[in-house]
Design a protein around this nucleic acid. Structure first.
Lengths: 200, 200
DNA sequence: ACATCATTGTTGACGGCGCCTACATTGCTG
DNA sequence: CAGCAATGTAGGCGCCGTCAACAATGATGT
């Protein structure tokens, strides 16, 4: 008979998902630098080479994590966007959602924007990114159509609107800006982006 | 006699500086992940444990690099700031300097904002950061005094002005935004930050 | 049903890494 | 010029990522 009946069967069943889950856990708890494939394998209860069957190398695992990150971000932003809201409140809601995601997933966010991605996955990644910023794109398009914001290349406008937000997110993710401070000043931040720094 | 008269003497002379220089070189050429203390020691012509005499551990070396980065950034921004310029051009010059530094030192910039710094160096680091954003602080203070921008907490105003810029820098450093694109749209970006997205 | 084969897991090994300890050489200081 | 602190060397430890060879399993076609 098998030595230990409580052992999982030889085949795990869904090792890939288990690895991704475990990886995101340590990512959240101890950061990306602390992520080791061997430790991950140990925690998941498989041999140290098992992860290699599902991810060509460590970077492939990180790429997969980044991809799921963008998908979740796209979903968060998508459900936070309410086209019925007045412009300023609509943008503020999006901003709050984005910063909330950042605060809850700092290490993941760093990963998502870290440039080391395999060209193979870059396509999927680019698509996921598009879906993520899609909420901002829609907001800008709507507002322009209603004449509520300046005309001009919508892509650039979106970039201006999103860059400020991403700057805050990057500072928070990097530890240079306390999350509370970023969240507290958000409404004011949105107001200033819309109305500009010049006096009325 | 010594086996090889062309060899450096037993003591290097200024190993610490040599290590920092070599480290920044590989940082620039192959990124932070590719930086290995042993390889660095090899390239510098010392034994693999020699770096340990000057940097407690790898993170200490990275911290020192980040510190020099902030000092150089502060200098770049300082000499790019011309208090005599009209507001918009003055801000644009600062923005261009910041983004230029980012493009020329992408990996270093990532390091500078990466949160993993030893509390011991964090003080020095914070001071260097203050000197870096000092240029923006001064600009905001001057402009407020002249009534050229809105009143209110100068720190928050500075944050709004700098966050948009840092967002662009972070996207460039992370590889999500091509440098040319960021630089090309800079003037427009500055204009929109000052005047806001709302129509006049 | 069952042989065959692709998939998925295991074991063992290799070289590289960061870091530590013990020791060697050098420069400084009294 | 003796002694000591600073600086470099040699070797070893445990961990890492990756690879190759092998084992178990599940799926497929007849």
């Amino acid at each position: 008979m098998t030595p230990m009946p409580t052992q999982r069967p030889y085949h795990h069943g869904d090792l890939r998902a288990a690895l991704l889950g475990g990886a995101e856990r340590t990512l959240r708890e101890r950061g990306a630098a602390a992520l080791s494939l061997r430790e991950l394998a140990r925690e998941t209860g498989v041999s140290h080479a098992a992860p290699g069957r599902h991810f060509r190398d460590k970077q492939a695992l990180l790429d997969a994590l980044a991809l799921t990150g963008f998908e979740r971000l796209a979903q968060v932003l998508g459900s936070a966007d309410d086209a019925g809201l007045p412009l300023e409140r609509r943008l503020a809601a999006l901003a709050r959602a984005y910063l909330g995601f950042t605060v809850d997933n700092t290490a993941l966010l760093e990963l998502m924007f870290s440039r080391k991605h395999d060209p193979d996955v870059s396509e999927q990644l680019a698509a996921a990114v598009d879906r993520s910023i899609g909420s901002f794109t829609r907001l800008v398009a709507d507002a322009q159509q209603r004449g509520e914001i300046v005309e001009g290349d919508p892509e650039r406008i979106t970039l201006v609107a999103a860059a400020g937000l991403h700057g805050l997110a990057a500072l928070v993710a990097g530890g240079s800006l306390p999350p509370e401070e970023a969240l507290a000043g958000l409404d004011e931040h949105v107001r200033l982006v819309l109305h500009g720094l010049r006096p009325r």
